[in-house]
């Protein structure tokens, strides 16, 4: 599903360059549940941006679903992201002016997939997440747990093969964290590949494999 080879990423820092990822190698099989842990500033978010094709690597190669991401144009990367990747962020990243329903529908709006019943797909997912009664509400009227359920529904709506989650329970209390992790378990059982970036060991332990990012290298 994913193959990173000797991936390096630099950021400009003042007059010089800071190397965030120093030759990362990673292979994730389809249907795997992987957790990547690391301290703050270890490059976890950079790793997620590269995996999600939100950012470009400076050297090395990256293959996602058999396609060479590092050789792709910006437009093709956007298409790949839409079709193959679903994001779940720590701060939910819902569009405040859109309703729950519209937020979940958004990936389908940009997608090429000709889903015949977009509306029923969205409603079914909202039902599955237990938030179908909130479909017309704006995100600011929802609790943290409800917002994350909306974000998960949005990540799943396009039936992507890869779910990337960045600290998905970072803003939630214990009880809500557990319900969200159970959702991830369910999604995994349905065959999706999940990569969770976290610094919470309890969250990481739900994964099949835990990797540590230290000084820009996976160990």
């Amino acid at each position: 599903m994913i193959e990173l080879r000797d991936v390096r990423k630099f950021y400009r820092s003042g007059s010089g360059k800071a190397e965030i990822l120093r030759g990362v190698n990673l292979r994730v099989e389809p249907g795997e549940y992987v957790a990547i842990m690391g301290k703050s500033g270890s490059g976890k978010s950079t790793m997620l941006n590269l995996l999600g094709t939100l950012d470009l690597l400076d050297s090395g190669t990256y293959e996602l679903a058999g396609k060479s991401v590092h050789k792709m144009s910006r437009g093709r990367r956007a298409r790949l992201r839409n079709e193959e990747v679903g994001f779940v962020f720590q701060h939910f990243q819902l569009i405040p002016n859109l309703s729950v329903y519209q937020n979940v529908l958004l990936p389908l709006t940009y997608g090429r997939k000709r889903l015949r019943r977009k509306k029923s797909r969205v409603l079914a997912l909202l039902d599955e997440m237990g938030i179908s009664n909130k479909k017309n509400q704006k995100p600011d009227r929802l609790s943290g747990g409800e917002k994350q359920r909306v974000a998960i529904a949005r990540a799943l709506v396009n039936e992507p093969r890869l779910i990337l989650a960045d600290e998905p329970t970072g803003s939630l209390d214990e009880e809500t964290t557990e319900s969200i992790l159970k959702l991830f378990d369910r999604v995994h059982k349905n065959g999706a590949t999940i990569i969770v970036i976290t610094h919470d060991i309890e969250v990481a332990e739900r994964a099949e494999r835990i990797l540590y990012l230290q000084n820009g290298v996976l160990v």
Binding site: G52, L54, R74, G75, A78, R79, R81, N82, E83, F87, Q93, L94, I95, N97, L106, P107, Y110, G111, R154, N158
Partner: peptide
Amino acid sequence: TREIGIRKALGATTSE
């Protein structure tokens, strides 16, 4: 800006 970032993360192309 953040909304644009979200839309791009969800697959919106530059032209869209």
